[in-house]
Design a protein around this nucleic acid. Structure first.
Lengths: 135, 135, 135, 135
DNA sequence: GTGGTCTAGACCACT
DNA sequence: GTGGTCTAGACCACA
């Protein structure tokens, strides 16, 4: 199963579902246009409450990650919603800074962090767009 | 004031205090060995309950970010605690991956993200250790 | 009741709760996987404030003694967290030395102390792994 | 110096003085009848408040560990106070149990704990009264 | 129902 | 004056 839920985690289960779906899409495990499991089906497989999945799907739709077609099911958005530049950059800036601060207090060197970042990106989509030719 | 709290945020206020203190230290606004505001003093300035600050300071002490000297006050740790490699890397890996996924869904290109990351690190400690030779 | 709190003790009540739970687990009165009383329920039984129990449970979770399952309750950890050797031994060495010094000032002979130690261990888990060949 | 104080420890400084003195006596660094440093002198050496030492010495005298001879100074008790059996055993029983529980949660085996105990006792007074002939 | 957070105000221990 | 503990009572998020 491409989605694992840990009910003991401090992260709410509905949030884990959201993160899991986003992760699966980013990794290409689920393609745009592909159908997601029905709510009840997914709830059964994960042995979690049906309402938990409802909440997760609702949030994912609000973020334009998935689309609900009434009567047909839920699908990964085909032509992805394009946020304007302001939202794109601004939304991420804070997350980036948070990560930098977290790294600082774990005494991770800058280049070490950049290295981890590149590695994560490469793993994510099997590309190696940044090559091996840099600092 | 070097610490801003948003009581409406979904992030608990005590967590915002923790993040704020860590951020201020990472940015060099507070130096190692320097005294932090007294608990009740900070609570007053932020117009929050002192117990909220108590909880934040306790967590920061647990993470070896600050130290309590009985009767004298609270201070930024001088000799930073060195977590072992496993904790250092492992703790960050998940955060890095989360950021990469978040960037993907905001349609941020890899090099754009790396650029933001480098910029954030440079801002953080005024260095430019990664030079100007990058993508 | 398997937990007694003395509000007059110099030991903080939340610490007494922590010790009491650990003791009950060590003695087998509560089994791994078993559910602990709900926070407010335990607070009522002990006639203390629920926040005191919250603090105790939080610390126990931090030490991996118990686990919180969101919405369902708090449970004794099934697969106990294995601290690394350094922590295991180092954490105890000081306590052992303290006990030895305490015994010295109470004029307890070495073998008497060892005897008490063995007896306590035997009581704790009904084993007699140290056999009958001792001083 | 046979006494080290850490003002950053969570253990109160006066308690650290008490423990330190008891430890020094148990280890034989200070002999019965020997004179302890004067209060002001010790406070100076440890660079702590004079009242802190006063409090520690008072508690040590209350426990019959030291004796104050007015005008002459403070001395380690010559013929040690002999608590009756009930106090001797009873006072220690709880401490022993606490240690056993602590060891349990650190996953220290019984014989390992006994071994540490014996080792600590041996170190304490350079004897080896328990020999090497046991389990 | 569960745990988690926050407040206002009190009291205590330590230096 | 410092931090630490505790209470009574409120509100919220999660499942």
């Amino acid at each position: 199963m491409w989605l694992q839920i840990n009910p003991r985690s401090s992260i709410p289960m509905y949030q884990q579902v959201i993160d899991g779906v986003k992760s699966a899409i980013a990794k290409g495990w689920i393609q745009p246009g592909e159908k997601l499991p029905a709510i009840r089906e997914l709830a059964m497989e994960l042995t979690i409450n049906h309402n938990t999945v409802v909440k997760a799907y609702a949030e994912l739709e609000r973020e334009h990650v998935i689309e609900v077609v009434r009567g047909r099911g839920t699908f990964v958005t085909q032509q992805p919603f394009v946020p304007n530049a302001e939202v794109r950059i601004g939304g991420l800036r804070e997350s980036v800074l948070r990560l930098a601060i977290e790294a600082y207090h774990l005494q991770i060197q800058d280049d070490e962090l950049i290295g981890m970042m590149k590695q994560a990106l490469d793993e994510l989509h099997g590309k190696n767009r940044l090559g091996g030719d840099e600092s």
